[in-house]
């Protein structure tokens, strides 16, 4: 489905995740973050870039991966993206959330 974010029409799935990563840019990112009540800081951008890098290499995202990333520790990760850090950070980064098989 289509959604207008930062005055741009983008394609999102039922849960609001971008379907096409090419439509992601920093303005779109800040708007989605705003909808999640997250204000982007330097540290947020660092995490977003790390997640996007993992996604492009097709490596699975996990809390364990975050712990070993050297970018951030897990307590900080929860503080930056309160509630569900993996689902929120991936939404903001414009990549699919980690899923199971159902």
């Amino acid at each position: 489905m289509k959604k207008v974010i930062a005055n741009k029409e983008v394609d999102v799935n039922e849960e609001g995740y971008l379907v096409d990563f090419k439509q992601w840019d920093r303005e779109v990112c800040e708007c989605i973050a705003g909808e999640c009540n997250v204000v982007m800081t330097e540290k947020h951008w660092e995490v977003v870039e790390y997640l996007q890098d993992k996604h492009l290499k097709e490596e699975p995202l996990s809390i364990r991966g975050i712990k070993k990333s050297g970018v951030i520790n897990i307590k900080e990760f929860y503080a930056l993206f309160p509630g569900g850090p993996l689902k929120k950070s991936t939404l903001i980064a414009g990549i699919p959330k980690p899923k199971s098989c159902i």
Binding site: E15, G83, L86, K97, P98, S100, I102
Partner: peptide, 29 residues
């Protein structure tokens, strides 16, 4: 650690009733 017992939208829609029916509490994330 995921955001639901069912993580794919089609499955969430089709199967969420199972948890209620069986009175299984869920803690996500």
């Amino acid at each position: 650690p995921l955001d639901g017992a069912f993580t794919k939208p089609t499955c969430t829609k089709a199967l969420n009733y199972l948890l209620k029916e069986k009175q299984i509490n869920i803690e996500t994330d």
